[in-house]
Design a protein around this nucleic acid. Structure first.
Length: 724
DNA sequence: CAGGGTTCTT
DNA sequence: AAGAACC
């Protein structure tokens, strides 16, 4: 009975009903009906996957140092164990336990410092990127969780394999009393469970990571059900069991989306369990929370959640912070700020975008009311400084930023009086993609015909449909991409044609589908910019490790999925992420108990050294000569040479370039021009761009904003990570 | 709340 | 700029 909503099952005949149900709850209602026709098979309901890695930080450390697999391992940040492996859990160690308690319970506990998130961040993005290579609709939640909307993928499989498949479920089915499980009643979820299993396998084989997955009809449910069978397993939630899983939640706090404050307010109303909330009159709830929040809370309690999976783009801000017992002198503050800035600026440089805003946040100690409250001040970053971040040495940049930071500091703290800080955070936000600058020169562009906007768009095409079911306004920018985007093929591989974004799926199945040459664009050109862009960024970064050496990640995303897949196939990539040993090589074995092993560049000396080394490798920042061919010359950068990331992918790569662009011509252009073009491609049409502004846009379309706004501006390169 | 992020809302 | 949420 339930709650209608998206949980209804399909059946072609019923989708309409379920669609209506789900829409009724949301603001999208108005546009509802029209959506149906926009794309043939509008999914009646979605199939959402939620992936949650097992003790993420601990897994990363165990990959870096396999010896840690057999010992009880705890990841320590300051005085707490933020997570630990299962060996440690068996011995009573839990997450967020203090180091002393943990050691008490498990004296042999091995500790690895986890304050430096670099490795975790890198692995995190690799995972998101990997998922994106199979399905564009991936939304990150923290470093170790990802939602994936596989509705379209499921529909395709359903269409392809009439009834063969869907006869079974992979993994568990959330069903207290699993009387009769009839996969045939839930073919989409059954297929979703197969996809989840395949993706988990890919995650394991390519990254060496294990984790759980939840398969359901919306994000809320997928996330909740993912946690039912813990270590490295997956669970599917059928619509008929929605009330079971929701009813099981003793406290409203267990509902994702209901935090401490909200739980308290609910408690004040006498609502503690999810059931209480389910039964509480909406009107009364409205009095306390207002219509939107009240409605949302009610829906969550019922397991109803129509929020779309919003492809996460490049991060909107980069920050670095440190907490400590006490800092009470301006000098110490300055020193700490400098330290934080050094690493932040480095990260910013790798990102490639330019921050427009700088923010300083502090937390002051105070017995009463203590912790918790943070105060911050922000200010625009003068252009000349912002530009240095990517061009000049980071040391210089830091020097320029410190005064700004101190100014902000003094706006919050009266240093003539005593003060006691316990945390300092520095943050860059309002990140803008660079490269658009010179776009003006039309002449250059004229070498290529259409292209400009095509790019990533296609990658996302599949999503569109989803969106239509998800939120009403999704259509917004469809018209922009009228161009189909056929890619003429670059170098080697097959000439594929375009479109079907769906291709990656083939990979899951183990076969490549190279389609016959020209496929008409069946998936409409429409789609979104938005998403496309958005995702592209983070993706590039990570994907770097998987790409063949001569492929520029930026360009990579401009390609159709088919080609992307190709490039990612073993034949093209170099040995790497593999599960095994390779990755651990870098790690210094005995990092046990030590704090931070290879984290090189925190120290300026190291930075300097790296820089010098880099200089030798690459005479100038911008190579003047293009290297249109082969990676022969390519050399895997040393582990520490992060700065090289960008250079490792010569801008010239002759193989990937947007559609109608002649690769040869492209490769012969000066690097600067190449970059310029690439950035333009990424930005989509300048006109609608919208992009740049980003901020303003959001208020308009809350949820959907995502797609649009982010994407558009997303920007360029970020090679967050080493090319491993 | 720990920690170090990050995003979105108010 | 602060609050709330999530990991």
């Amino acid at each position: 009975m339930a709650n209608s909503e998206d949980e209804m099952e399909e059946d072609e005949t019923e989708w309409k009903n379920s669609f209506v149900d789900s829409v009724s709850l949301s603001s999208a209602a108005a546009s509802g009906p029209s959506l149906n026709k926009t794309s043939g098979p509008t999914p009646a309901h979605r199939v959402i996957l939620h992936f949650d890695l097992d003790c993420f930080y601990a897994q990363v450390e165990m990959i870096r140092n396999p010896a840690l697999r057999e010992v009880p391992l705890g990841i320590q940040q300051k005085y707490i164990i933020v997570t630990c492996n299962y060996v440690a859990r068996d011995q009573g160690v839990t997450k967020l336990m203090s180091v002393t308690d943990a050691k008490e319970r498990c004296p042999q506990l091995v500790l690895v410092k986890g304050e430096d998130l670099t490795h975790y961040r890198e692995m995190s993005y690799k995972l998101t990127e990997l998922l994106m290579s199979y399905c564009p609709l991936v939304e990150r939640l923290g470093f170790d969780e990802n939602f994936v909307d596989v509705t379209n993928m499921v529909e395709r499989r359903l269409a392809q394999t009439p009834e063969s498949n869907s006869l079974s479920f992979k993994g568990h089915i959330y069903n207290h009393f699993s009387a009769d499980v009839k996969p045939s009643d839930h073919p989409r979820l059954a297929l979703g469970s197969h996809i989840a299993a395949e993706l988990r396998e890919v995650i394991h084989s390519k990254l060496g990571l294990t984790g759980c997955a939840g398969i359901a009809t919306n994000k809320l449910l997928a996330k909740l059900v993912a946690g039912t069978f813990k270590p490295n397993q997956q669970t599917t939630l059928l619509p008929e069991n929605v009330s079971d899983i929701m009813g099981c939640l003793s406290s409203v706090r267990k509902v994702p989306g209901v935090g401490h404050q909200t739980a308290k307010r609910l408690q004040a109303l006498g609502l503690v369990s999810v059931k209480d909330l389910q039964l509480f009159p909406l009107n009364d709830l409205v009095k306390e929370f207002g219509v939107p929040s009240a409605q949302r809370l009610k829906n969550l309690a019922l397991g109803v959640d129509d929020s779309p999976v919003v492809p996460t783009g490049a991060p909107q801000s980069l920050s670095d912070e440190d907490s400590f017992k006490k800092i009470s002198s301006t000098t110490d503050v300055l020193e700490k700020i400098q330290e934080l800035l050094r690493s932040l600026v480095e990260r910013m440089r790798k990102d490639g975008r330019q921050p427009q805003t700088f923010r300083l946040t502090i937390r002051r100690y105070s017995a009463t009311n203590k912790w918790f409250s943070r105060e911050s001040r922000q200010c625009p970053i003068p252009n000349h400084i912002g530009q240095k971040i990517s061009s000049d040495s980071s040391d210089d940049t830091v020097v320029q930023l410190v005064p700004l930071a101190m100014e902000l500091f003094h706006k919050m703290v009266d240093s003539s009086a005593a003060f006691h800080l316990t945390l300092i955070n520095v943050c860059f936000s309002n990140l803008q993609s660079k490269g658009a600058a010179v776009s003006g020169k039309g002449s250059i562009k004229s070498f290529f015909t259409h292209s400009t906007s095509a790019r990533k768009t296609q990658i996302f095409s599949s999503q569109r449909q989803d969106d239509s079911s998800q939120s009403g306004d999704s259509n917004c920018m469809d018209h922009q991409f009228s161009t189909p985007c056929l890619i003429t093929e670059p170098t080697s591989q097959k000439t594929v044609t375009t479109k079907s974004p769906r291709s990656s799926e083939a990979a899951l199945h183990g076969f490549k589908r190279k389609q016959s040459p020209v496929v008409a664009v069946e998936d409409p050109p429409l789609q979104r910019i938005s998403c496309s862009t958005a995702r592209s960024d983070p993706g590039e970064t990570n994907i770097a490790h998987q790409l063949p050496p001569n492929v520029d990640p930026e360009v990579f995303w401009l390609l159709p999925e088919e080609i992307q897949k190709e490039l990612l196939s073993p034949a093209y990539t170099h040995p790497l992420p593999g599960t095994s040993s390779s990755s651990s090589a870098v790690v210094d074995a005995p990092c046990i108990t030590k704090s931070k092993p290879p984290q090189s560049f925190t120290d300026s000396q190291t930075i300097k050294d790296i820089k010098e080394a880099a200089e030798k490798l690459v005479p100038s920042n911008r190579p003047t000569t293009v290297n249109p061919h082969r990676p022969d010359t390519y050399v895997l950068p040393g582990e520490n040479v992060m700065e090289e990331g960008r250079r490792s992918f010569p801008q010239s790569s002759d193989c990937e370039i947007p559609g109608n662009v002649d690769p040869k011509v492209f490769s012969e252009l000066p690097p600067d021009v190449q970059r310029e073009l690439m950035s333009e491609w990424k930005q989509q049409k300048p006109v609608l761009k919208t992009a740049s502004s980003r901020k303003p846009g959001r208020s308009l379309m809350t949820k959907d904003r995502k797609a649009a706004g982010k994407g558009s501006q997303a920007n360029n390169l970020f090679k967050y990570f080493k090319p491993s």
